[in-house]
Amino acid sequence: MATELQIAIIQTSLFWENPEQNRKSISDKIDTISMETDMIVLPEMFTTGFTMSPQNIDKNEGKTTLKWMQEKARQQNSAIVGSIPFYTNGAYTNRLFFVEPNSQYHCYDKRHTFTLAGEDKVYRAGSERLIVNYKGFRICPLICYDLRFPVWARNTVDYDILIYVANWPKPRVTAWDTLLKARAIENMAYCIGVNRVGFDETGHEYSGHSAVYDTLGNDLCFSKKESVLTAKLSKEHISTTRNKLKFLADRDSFTLAP
């Protein structure tokens, strides 16, 4: 059981609806990571950009990308995390995969589909939150628009790390910065936000602002440029802060209706 978790964030531009080219580009960036890394986090829909036309892509691409994630996880001896359009049971989902180095994987389907872009009409929404136990850390991975809904992220299960993978556009990046920090503070957990950069084919610009915040809302890393960011997360920081400031003991107990 680890007491620290070394993470890397791939903040990158994406090739529109081109899984093969995105896998190659991201693979090249992952290969530049020289330090031992426990977890590598990629943006939302990292093989395609935030497309509302997944039918333009081969339905088997999701399975191809999952196999690629398993191969990279084995090669790097690191978990790989990110979401892709995934076709299953006659429908598309915006599915996040958390792939461990031993090829075991966990998946989460985006709960809050982005109605402003019509995502709710294209992708089937998920209904269950995921908690992954990895190297002694309890991790809750979520996707983009989920960030605006604090009840869904509320730390009722004592997770250590909250992850948001995103395609969050530049005009609303102030909300991204503010809400990531808020989710860290209110849940007394590390909060990792991974966004993309560049323009997509619909004309939206993305300015990055990928970051990691500690349990007090202090940023451990931040960037606006295409880059690989790194941070070290500490179990001691979590336990020390929670033992000193027992805010979670006063949290409201509740369950979500289906």
Results as ranks from 00 to 15, higher is better:
210 S>D: 02
7 I>T: 06
122 V>W: 00
157 V>C: 14
123 Y>Q: 04
170 K>C: 04
212 V>C: 12
185 I>Y: 10
218 N>L: 11
125 A>H: 14
143 I>L: 12
106 H>R: 09
220 L>V: 01
245 L>I: 00
193 G>R: 04
31 D>C: 13
82 G>K: 06
243 N>L: 06
223 S>F: 00
152 W>I: 15
11 Q>F: 12
236 E>V: 05
11 Q>W: 02
23 R>D: 12
256 L>N: 01
128 E>I: 02
184 A>E: 08
255 T>W: 06
249 A>V: 06
118 G>H: 07
206 Y>N: 03
121 K>V: 10
11 Q>L: 12
45 M>I: 15
235 K>S: 05
96 L>H: 02
28 D>A: 14
222 F>V: 10
46 F>N: 12
84 I>T: 05
77 N>F: 02
40 I>K: 01
68 W>V: 14
187 N>F: 08
69 M>S: 04
89 N>Y: 06
9 I>L: 09
52 M>S: 09
64 T>M: 13
45 M>Q: 15
247 F>Q: 01
74 R>Q: 08
101 P>A: 05
30 I>R: 06
225 K>S: 12
168 W>G: 03
136 G>T: 08
216 L>Y: 10
244 K>V: 02
249 A>D: 06
164 Y>V: 01
216 L>W: 02
46 F>Y: 15
15 F>S: 09
190 Y>I: 00
254 F>G: 08
7 I>Y: 02
162 L>T: 08
60 N>P: 01
11 Q>N: 12
105 Y>A: 05
117 A>F: 13
102 N>D: 15
239 S>R: 10
171 P>C: 11
110 K>R: 05
120 D>I: 09
18 N>Y: 11
91 A>K: 09
204 H>R: 10
105 Y>T: 12
160 D>T: 07
132 V>Y: 06
95 R>A: 09
74 R>Y: 09
79 A>P: 03
18 N>A: 14
44 E>N: 12
117 A>W: 03
148 R>C: 01
31 D>I: 08
254 F>N: 09
45 M>F: 14
255 T>E: 11
247 F>S: 03
6 Q>F: 05
30 I>A: 11
185 I>A: 10
129 R>N: 07
198 G>P: 04
111 R>W: 13
17 E>W: 03
82 G>R: 02
